[in-house]
Amino acid sequence: MNMSINEIENEIVEEFEMFDNWIDKYEYLIDLGKSLPKISDSEKTKENIITGCQSQVWLNAKEKDRHIIFYADSDAIMTKGIIAILIRVLSFQKPKDIINAKLEFIEKIGLKEQLSPTRANGLVSMIKKMKIYALGFEQKL
């Protein structure tokens, strides 16, 4: 049985509580970004690009056993780090749970500013698109 979205969120919050300065936290994010599997150039299509004013995000999704698996990539490493966290939370979950996810942990780990629409890094649109995928899959199921 997979961990629930809530359980994963709590796990991440605990991990981030270990950091007592921004440098360690950002270095961890950068590491997460670097270890996120890349999407191949051929999969970076016009259909799955999310253009932010600053950085770009590519997002793909597929369905397996009534769960959704997300793949994503970005040209900016900080953005990729946050993508890695979002994928850890939302991938392999049921469409309904993805749609209802509030993702309040982002604020708890002190990265809310990274998800503000003014950052224009594509992440806000990415979360929206993840939910739209979930909605689409749910209607198909």
Binding site: I30, Q54, Q114
Partner: peptide, 21 residues
């Protein structure tokens, strides 16, 4: 290095620059 990453980290050190096109 992507300009966005540089801008975000400099901001953490109190330095305001602009990044993008």
């Amino acid at each position: 290095i992507h300009h966005y990453d540089l801008g975000v980290i400099l901001d953490k050190m109190g330095i305001a620059i602009r990044t993008g096109h």
